[in-house]
């Protein structure tokens, strides 16, 4: 590991100031479970590391039945995993946080960190995207809120400027009649990167599907929402045939690659199986 300067600012302004002084060569540290590994393996060699843990308010974990869920940048995956509220209203996210790495890692790794890492196989991104989450971003020009969709631009890349911090993730409150499922395909129970991940967030009203998010992980450069699949079910009765057709459309839409974990063809087949299973499970929850 190369030597670096280390800071523990007490406010967002101070943090952004440090980053500007460092001409954007700094890295934010929250959980550190990715950053430290990357530094040890020379993937990243920051000139300064700015620890966000001393900044007040970043450990927010708040749910309101009208405004929804608000998670600060320091909220860990383990906090979500062990939260009854998360399980009740954001079952997909809670599942993703449970399937993620190991308990030891989840005790440190943050949800916002997982978002900003922008890994194609990130577990928390598909359920958050399926739920239409958005992000609060603080930077030199103040605070802005952006949709999560479009935030990740390529593997490891986001629209975030070096001197900006994602302070919170916001997830709308679920409408009555909503079910959420995240299914992860990997070889192991834990300590696994998804070969394929599928999140479904589905709302039924009067026997028809009134809102639907289907998002695929690990089968495109960024997590992929599949409107072509969603369209086959929206405003429709979710019959067996329509569910199968939506799963097939999801498989059609994905852009997987072949690597040591799995071939593109297999990933595509798994998208179909997992999408169908996720939809069926969501409908079963609502039955």
């Amino acid at each position: 590991m190369k030597s670096f300067d280390y800071f523990e600012p007490h406010s967002l302004e101070e943090a952004v100031g440090l980053q500007q002084q460092g001409q954007g060569r700094g890295c934010w540290l929250a959980g550190g479970t990715d950053l430290l590994v990357q530094m040890k393996e020379h993937v990243r060699q920051p000139g300064l590391v700015i620890n966000l843990k001393k900044i007040r308010g970043l450990d927010d974990f708040h749910f309101d039945s009208v405004t929804g869920l608000r998670l600060g940048a320091l909220v860990t995956a383990r906090e979500v995993e062990t939260s009854p509220l998360a399980h009740q209203h954001y079952a997909g996210l809670a599942r993703a946080c449970t399937d993620f790495a190991s308990i030891q890692v989840r005790n440190r790794a943050t949800v916002v960190g997982n978002i900003c890492r922008a890994s194609p196989s990130a577990d928390t991104l598909p359920p958050l995207l399926a739920d239409d989450a958005s992000l609060c971003i603080h930077g030199p020009r103040g605070t802005r809120t952006v949709a999560l969709e479009g935030f990740c631009t390529a593997p490891g890349r986001t629209i975030l400027a070096p001197d900006e911090i994602v302070t919170h993730v916001l997830v709308p409150a679920p409408a009555p009649g909503t079910a959420k499922v995240y299914l992860k395909h990997g070889r192991r129970e834990q300590m696994e990167l998804a070969t394929v991940g599928v999140a479904v967030s589905l709302t039924m009203s009067r026997g028809r599907c009134s809102r639907l998010g289907i998002v695929l992980g690990a089968v495109a450069p960024t997590p992929l929402r599949v409107p072509t699949a969603e369209a086959l079910l929206l405003d429709e009765e979710p019959t067996r045939d329509r569910v199968h057709a939506a799963a097939a459309a999801a498989a059609q839409a994905c852009q997987p690659i072949s690597d040591v974990r799995a071939s593109a063809g297999y990933r595509r087949q798994m998208v179909e199986v997992l999408t169908r299973r996720a939809l069926v499970q969501a409908l079963e929850v609502l039955r």
Binding site: R187, R188, E189, Q190, M191, E192, L193, V260, R261
Partner: peptide, 27 residues
């Protein structure tokens, strides 16, 4: 699970790490 893979064009090791070389764990 376990398969240490070698690129058959260059001889390069493709998964010399525990991220891509999977072993079953306790769970």
């Amino acid at each position: 699970y376990e398969d240490f893979q070698i690129d058959l064009k260059t001889g390069r090791s493709l998964n010399p790490n525990f991220v891509d070389y999977k072993m079953p764990l306790f769970m």
